[in-house]
Design a binder for these strands. Structure first.
Lengths: 156, 156
DNA sequence: GCTAATCGGAACAAGATGGTCCGATTAGCT
DNA sequence: AGCTAATCGGACCATCTTGTTCCGATTAGC
């Protein structure tokens, strides 16, 4: 019941990209420095995001990425689905996946579809534009390093 | 964005347990046969569910398990949290986990808490009692084997 | 007091995830 | 026009969580 680290990183990166003006080109290196995401991981993410159609890429010297749509038209669900595929809490709610023997008489399945729709709606209701608003004064620069470096126990 | 197979199995098993009268004792073997969950996995699950307080266990010959609460008082969120811990989409929404460098000025975090609450609410709104109603006539016995044997691609 | 059946937790294997690297492509410069 | 340099794109490998399996501890019944 936790989304992958890549999705978390992707949301942060897209949020950072949305804060820039739509026109400027930014590359993976810049985004990695701003967000603190490791560079190779950032490269992998922008690759997936562009192949999913959320980013438009330009190769060659001076190339980079750009949001393909205005930030208000990109939701958390879009970003998550771009990174880790369709949102499906269980295998049986996913289309074209019918490998459950009791699917015909399963009483749990219809409820899963309802819950899944609710979850997806909660994610689709938040856009990148909403993530760009700054609740506090921009005192602290956000180019912090080691953002959530590990899901492992870094308690002590 | 998919819950673990163990949680899926646990929901099916708890749903099966809820269909029995509250008084009867059932053991892991019986539940495994009814639901198609592999027996060792079923044992592991009932162990976690009982340690979480959802099942009451009785050891020794003739022992077994029993729901500790009426089915209407057990929700999907209870079962999932019993199996895989607190529901937290990201590490930063979990209590006592503050290993994010930009947590103080992060604009994404407050939105994550909102989304997380919505997701948890969707799961808490479905009780085992609701899962027990039978939408179709009980034509097909549900002691089917190999319920979702793999999350791997079993397409062809 | 012994036996048998059950729960409980520890140990192992597998798949998925996350991180790293190198090659293909393209714009800019000489 | 050719070359160089910078960037994207995809393939490879280590790591971790997940899922499975097994064996020991406990307890009711005989």
């Amino acid at each position: 019941m936790r989304l992958s680290s890549l999705s978390d990183y992707a949301v942060v990166m897209m949020s950072a990209a949305a804060r820039h003006c739509g026109g400027v080109r930014l590359n993976a290196t810049l985004l990695a420095e701003e967000t603190g995401v490791p560079l190779p991981t950032a490269q992998k993410l922008v690759s997936r995001l562009s192949s999913a159609g959320l980013l438009e890429s330009t190769r060659g010297t001076g190339g980079g990425f750009r949001l393909s749509r205005p930030p208000a038209a990109i939701s958390l669900a879009d970003v998550i689905e771009a990174v880790e595929g369709p949102i499906a809490l269980t295998a049986c709610v996913e289309e074209s996946r019918h490998d459950c023997a009791i699917e015909g008489s399963c009483r749990v399945r219809p409820h899963w579809t309802v819950v899944n729709t609710a979850v997806r709606g909660a994610l689709a209701g938040v856009s990148l534009a909403q993530l760009s608003v700054e609740p506090v004064s921009q005192s602290a620069p956000h180019n912090a390093i080691s953002r959530a470096p590990a899901l492992a126990g870094a308690q002590e």
